[in-house]
Design a protein around this nucleic acid. Structure first.
Lengths: 134, 134
DNA sequence: CCTTTTAACGTACATTTGAACGTAATCTAT
DNA sequence: ATAGATTACGTTCAAATGTACGTTAAAAGG
């Protein structure tokens, strides 16, 4: 995915709501936010316009109301932002990031089992790929 | 750890160098940075002053030169910043963050084994704790 | 058709962040 | 002792970010 302009915290928060709703008006997003925090209609509207200008969202008009929808893939954006953080905090190294992730939580054995299952699946996938490439 | 003011990218970059060197002058940090990027003495100096004012670093003077040293624990700061990101991108959920971490890398089998070993150790630790609490 | 309500666009403002300088003071070299 | 080099502090500036409003226009209601 082409790298888009930086995505500050509040814009990311708004963008994630649009991704979750798949499309939304300003009013709908304001209502969604009201559950967590107070946000003026005008503020949200500005964020949405900035996101559209940056290329994260696309807009179509219905009557006088703008409908905002994702213009890029959520996974790609999350990946980009997260990797930048891992790079910045851990020089991109997975192990310390992973340690930070698990050590800061009270994991149950079943949580751990779930992670191990994931890793086993990854391992099997690597084996399959290697088998095929030989 | 008491929550300190936000730590922007460039300040974090400088702070990590101080943590690595354990203590440093402006000049030493500028030299350290020169390997990666161009940075004016004045710019680094400003960042260091901001970090000290925010409580991340402490300062002592030797002659006319300030020596900067960490005032808080690196782990605590990394944890705070990383957790904020996981909260923001994944609503604090470990599994999607973990998936993002491993799926964006070409992990070898030995990488995966290393992660498994870590998780096994964690599991054993959980068992020991539970045993003791009974 | 007129009035009221509400949304969009352009714009404004404060703070934060990235980046840097000017002057005074201190240290080093001669 | 003086000149040159270098550092600190206070300050400055631009861009980014967080937040919000005013006027115009469109839709809804009467």
């Amino acid at each position: 995915m082409k790298e888009l302009p930086p995505l500050p915290k509040s814009e990311l928060e708004i963008a994630r709501i649009v991704w979750r709703l798949q499309e939304a008006t300003v009013r709908e997003i304001v209502e969604e936010l009201a559950n967590d925090r107070e946000a003026d209609f005008w503020t949200v509207q500005t964020y949405l316009r900035r996101l559209a200008n940056k290329g994260y969202l696309k807009v179509r008009k219905e009557g006088r109301t703008n409908i905002y929808a994702p213009a890029v893939d959520l996974e790609g954006v999350i990946s980009q932002v997260f990797e930048e953080t891992v790079e910045r905090l851990f020089d991109g190294k997975m192990l310390p990031a992973f340690q930070q992730l698990v050590n800061s939580r009270d994991l149950t054995e079943s949580d751990i089992d779930e992670l191990q299952t994931l890793l086993n699946g990854l391992k099997a996938e690597r084996k399959r790929k290697r088998g095929k490439s030989k």
